[in-house]
Lab assay of single mutants.
Amino acid sequence: RLRTTITPEQLEILYEKYLLDSNPTRKMLDHIAREVGLKKRVVQVWFQNTRARERK
């Protein structure tokens, strides 16, 4: 399986959204995914991984 490459522009948007809410609802994930042009599951995993990194 190929990994999804997230561009610096997409990362910037994702981090902005993360600062507003680190645990977004399904509806918010849909909205964020459309905004950055990624699949909802990719955005969901990015948020999970970012939360895990923050806990370390």
Rank of each mutant, 00 (worst) to 15 (best):
T5E: 13
L19G: 11
A33T: 05
D21Q: 05
L29E: 14
E12Y: 04
M28V: 09
Q10F: 00
N23Y: 10
N49P: 02
V42F: 11
T5P: 11
K27Y: 08
T5W: 05
R51E: 08
H31Q: 14
R3F: 11
E35S: 08
Q44T: 10
L20R: 08
R53Q: 13
S22R: 05
K27P: 13
S22W: 04
H31D: 12
A52L: 07
V43K: 00
P24T: 00
D30M: 05
E9H: 06
L38V: 08
N23R: 12
L11I: 11
Y18H: 01
K40E: 15
R53N: 12
L11K: 10
T50I: 11
L19T: 08
L11V: 13
P24F: 04
D30G: 10
D30I: 10
E54P: 03
T5C: 10
I6R: 00
V45N: 05
L20H: 05
V43F: 01
I32W: 07
T4C: 07
Q44L: 09
L14C: 00
I6C: 03
P24N: 02
I13E: 10
K17Y: 15
E9D: 12
R3D: 15
Q10R: 02
H31P: 04
V36P: 02
L11G: 11
Q44A: 11
L20M: 09
T25N: 08
Q44D: 15
G37R: 05
L20F: 10
E35V: 05
T4F: 10
K27C: 09
L14E: 00
E9R: 11
L20P: 02
L2K: 14
Q10D: 14
D21S: 04
P8K: 06
R41V: 12
G37A: 06
K17W: 03
M28K: 03
A52K: 10
A33L: 02
D21M: 02
V42W: 04
T4K: 04
H31Y: 07
H31C: 12
L11T: 14
L20V: 11
V43S: 02
L11P: 00
D21C: 05
R41I: 11
I32T: 04
I32K: 01
V42L: 09
E35P: 00
K39A: 14
L11Q: 12
R53L: 12
A33S: 08
P24W: 09
R53S: 14
V45H: 06
P8W: 07
W46P: 01
A33V: 02
D30H: 06
A52F: 04
R53A: 11
R3V: 13
P8A: 13
R26F: 08
L19Y: 08
K39N: 08
R51D: 08
V43W: 01
Q48M: 08
E54Q: 02
E12T: 14
N23E: 10
K40L: 15
N23M: 09
I6N: 02
I13F: 10
P24E: 00
T5I: 12
R55Y: 12
E9K: 13
I6E: 04
N23D: 11
Q48F: 05
P24K: 00
K40C: 13
A52E: 15
V36Y: 03
H31N: 05
F47A: 00
A52N: 14
K39I: 01
T7M: 05
I32E: 00
Q10P: 01
K17N: 12
M28T: 11
P24V: 01
I32P: 03
R53W: 05
K27I: 06
R3S: 15
N23T: 07
R3T: 15
T25Q: 04
T7D: 06
E12A: 12
G37W: 00
V36Q: 02
Y18D: 00
I32G: 00
V42M: 09
K27R: 04
E35L: 06
I32S: 00
H31W: 09
R3C: 14
V42A: 07
K17V: 03
K56H: 03
E12F: 13
V43C: 03
K39Y: 15
T25S: 10
K17T: 09
I32C: 03
M28S: 08
V45M: 07
T4P: 12
E35D: 06
F47R: 00
R34P: 03
L38A: 03
R41H: 14
Y15R: 14
R3W: 08
V43I: 08
T25D: 07
G37M: 04
L29N: 05
T7I: 02
E9W: 06
G37Q: 10
I6A: 06
T4A: 06
P8I: 12
L11C: 01
R53H: 13
V42D: 14
L20K: 12
L29I: 11
L11M: 10
Q10K: 03
